[in-house]
Design a protein around this nucleic acid. Structure first.
Lengths: 347, 347
DNA sequence: TTGTAGGCGTTATCAC
DNA sequence: GTGATAACGCCTACAA
């Protein structure tokens, strides 16, 4: 780099953008004044201000946010960590988070991990290196727990829709998973089901445990459990494997989320079983495709948008004051959506 | 703020994070040495290095990315602008972009605009203020064109899956929209349809124009056109309104994307029409819900992941050299997925 | 093998 | 109403 700023003007090499000094020099004032014209932080004579604004426009000057943030000690940007961007449940959650952030003048960065620990690490690095001021954590890859633990307390983090086992003292906003499980249990029991297959998510997640507890308690029947990973493929695989080994021996399936329920649906269909005549299927989340599917999926509606919005608003309340958030919990109500995938167990 | 860094140790106020100076002082070396121990940019005696690393761990030192970026002149982060995060088409595109970015050591920020011009502006501001090194633009809100035009050429921007009318000299990666339209036209014609309703996206988008051109040319029948906005609700509204006014007078509907096709499906069902018996429906994109829906939707499969990946890889090729990308175009193949929502037009 | 000094672009403090 | 100066935290010539 030569010390002459405005020399290189060929094609490709990006010209060095104008800095506040360039503007000041061109306007015949000090950088201080330029800064104040732009921020309005102190009075500037109208004449000077007009001249400065002219130069700003002519040079296309835009303050470097990096320098500004470095000096301010914060970036006014937070992150939202989610495991699977193509699950529309998280998309809705993200919308809530985005709206809450924008309301308070913060930017929101969406961080998608694909359930990948390395990727999660990379994104968490953004908060450790203070590229972002805080993080809403809506992911749930189990191996991340220890890392999370080390981070919380040092950096502003809020948990959305998910709790991590053993992690306490956190700021948490979740749906009422236990109630959701209970609603499903009661529904299936009322339909006469007495033996159900439960497809869960990874063990370390409290949301899953809470759902399972609520379900088992209310169902009061036999429950076969299989552990999956929230992906459609795992719902398919678990059911297909049981089918191979001589049948499900159940009249109902309760999947940890709608995606896994879709996988189960496909496996059942391929095995020649009809839903809900031969077997009932229930999901969790109530994503858009649930009502579109055939048959329309009975599922538990989670207020995804509100969960995202609440977690983010809570977090920002502390971030904006430069404080680490205290423990606090917000539990949002859920609702059972009875659709076409469940029916009485009399055959 | 008192000048003593390590005093405040109460509860909430976040303690000032350790800086390179703190580490240097604690290890009895200069900041330069700490920097080099961490970067490996010049040899450091093993003894010193070990001591420094010890202090780094003890203090939990993480270099401030802002300061690093300010000095380096780039952040190694790029953005991806999309209009609708809950459309899984964009989710897939984002995955491709994310993979390409990570492969080259770049971070990717997902920017969701909800088709909102203000929000798009905010996010484009990140590139003007150099918070990010470049942007993959996969949005398509028409009013943004003038802004985009001003930005391209000054900042590294690539267009993914979308071209904006009149915007030339850009780096572009899209699916073959025209071929997609043609495939649909041929398919419907072969089924005996002669009069079709075409639900388009906003006019300013070239992708829609290309699809329409391909369709009209291959269909060789009468085409009624209605302009929508890519949202499910608009597909519903347009069809419902025509139905109210005395029927569609068409045997087939070609929607600009799957979401609008779903909306059309709902409106038709509510009017007591069956698909495909009474009327055929075709979408575009082939999102996950398309094959799940009832009936499964005939649609054009776009290689969303590859579009995102290609656009991003192309962009980064120039960003990493500090160059503004030249004009170039990559057109990716599409594929017609014939499913249950289309049938012969003989009734 | 290590240290000193300057600069990245801003804003806050202090002085006039 | 306006300016000089320092500081945010880092990297990297240049020097020893």
């Amino acid at each position: 780099m030569t010390p002459e700023p405005y020399t290189a003007d060929r094609q490709s090499p990006v010209r060095r953008p104008a800095s506040i000094k360039d503007v000041a020099a061109a306007a015949g004032v000090s950088p201080t004044t330029v800064s104040h014209v732009l921020s309005g932080n102190r009075p500037v004579s109208e004449e000077t201000a007009a001249r400065v604004r002219g130069v700003v426009n002519r040079l296309g000057y835009v303050p470097a946010s990096l320098a500004r943030s470095l000096q301010a000690g914060s970036t006014s940007v937070i992150g939202l960590l989610i495991p699977d961007i193509s699950n529309t449940f998280f998309a809705e959650l993200a919308k809530g988070a985005e709206d809450a952030a924008h309301d308070l003048g913060y930017g929101l960065i969406l961080c998608n991990t694909e359930f990948d620990a390395d990727r999660e690490d990379r994104y968490l690095g953004m908060i450790r290196s203070r590229f972002i001021d805080g993080m809403v954590y809506a992911s749930g890859s189990p191996p991340s727990r220890r890392r999370l633990e080390a981070l919380m307390g040092k950096f502003p983090i809020a948990l959305a829709d998910e709790e991590v086992e053993g992690l306490e003292g956190a700021l948490i906003a979740t749906a009422d998973h236990e109630a959701g499980g209970r609603l499903v249990g009661e529904h299936l029991r009322a339909l006469g089901h007495r033996r159900a297959l439960m497809l869960t998510g990874p063990r370390a997640l409290m949301s899953g445990t809470a759902r399972a507890n609520g379900f088992v308690r209310a169902f009061q029947g036999e429950v076969v459990e299989r552990v999956g990973d929230f992906k459609e493929a795992s719902g398919y695989r678990l059911v297909a494997k049981l089918l191979e080994k001589g049948g499900l021996d159940c009249t109902a399936v309760f999947a940890a989320n709608d995606l896994m329920a879709f996988g189960a649906l496909t496996a059942l269909r391929e095995a020649g079983l009809s839903v809900p005549e031969d077997i009932s299927v229930v999901g969790f989340d109530d994503i858009r495709a649930a009502s579109l599917a055939h048959p329309p999926l009975t599922t538990v509606h989670q207020p995804a948008y509100d969960v995202g919005r609440t977690a983010t608003a809570q977090l920002l309340q502390y971030v904006s004051r430069g404080e680490v958030p205290p423990a606090s919990r917000h539990t949002l109500p859920v609702e059972l959506k009875v659709r076409g995938s469940t029916a009485p167990a009399d055959r």
